[in-house]
């Protein structure tokens, strides 16, 4: 094999290597560096909050109950909260996406459970069993949500009334509008003490929370 041929094939290998390297760099790039996402609105009494109001770290999630990634991250969030519940609080805000027809019904069910003080229990049930209702019709999904409400021993008459009330949908839409206003374009979107973060794994998430707890986050 002469030098020209070796150079030719080496050139090809280099091009393939450059393509793969470029992709890896693009994937590892933190979106924060170019992010134009604004700061979430301050936490108010109407928010769904788990944890103490005096907690040093506030994690705000904009989520969609039918989003598979949100379901995965819900386990991360629960684990993080369990490990740092005295110093961290979690806030969930609705951001139902149009491609998920059961996202708003699920959000309604969570809010209706919240009226009876069981928002986070319903939150966990919805995410843990997402595959059971995600691809069902809205009527079937609502029947499944009724089953969760029964499991949580909710007052079913009030649950059904709250689920369909105009104030429930108004709250969901208001949170979604607020998310749109600050430029959210995907779920889940997380903010730690007002700053957007994009962890890919539980470990990355934990590092971010630990840094915020120790006050070393930028």
């Amino acid at each position: 094999m002469n030098t020209k041929r070796i150079t030719f094939w080496l050139g090809f290998v280099v091009i393939i290597g450059l393509i793969i390297w470029g992709l890896v760099v693009a994937m590892n790039k933190t979106p924060n560096s170019t992010s134009k996402i604004g700061v979430p609105a301050p936490v108010t009494s109407s928010d769904n909050v788990e944890g103490s109001s005096s907690a040093r770290v506030t994690l705000i999630e904009y989520g969609d109950f039918q989003c598979p990634a949100c379901s995965t991250y819900a386990f991360y969030v629960e684990r993080l909260f369990n490990e740092a519940s005295s110093t961290m609080r979690v806030v969930f805000r609705h951001f139902p996406l149009s491609q998920h027809p059961n996202a708003i019904p699920a959000a309604r069910a969570a809010e209706a459970a919240g009226v009876q003080g069981k928002f986070w229990d319903m939150y966990r049930l919805l995410y843990a069993n997402q595959s059971d209702w995600s691809e069902k019709t809205t009527t079937e999904a609502n029947t499944i949500f009724d089953g969760y409400a029964t499991t949580l021993k909710l007052d079913m008459t009030n649950f059904k009334a709250d689920e369909m009330s105009s104030s429930t949908i108004a709250k969901i839409m208001a949170q979604e509008a607020e998310g749109q206003k600050i430029g959210i374009d995907h779920t889940p979107s997380f903010f730690v003490n007002g700053r957007e973060v994009n962890p890919n794994t539980y470990e990355e998430f934990k590092t971010i929370i630990d840094a915020a707890l120790s006050g070393t986050a930028e």
């Binding site: 994937m27 598979p68 991250y73 998920h100 995907h186 794994t201």
Partner: peptide, 9 residues
């Protein structure tokens, strides 16, 4: 990488 793709608008 096991990254769950986020849900985009």
């Amino acid at each position: 990488r096991g990254v769950i793709p986020p849900c985009s608008v």
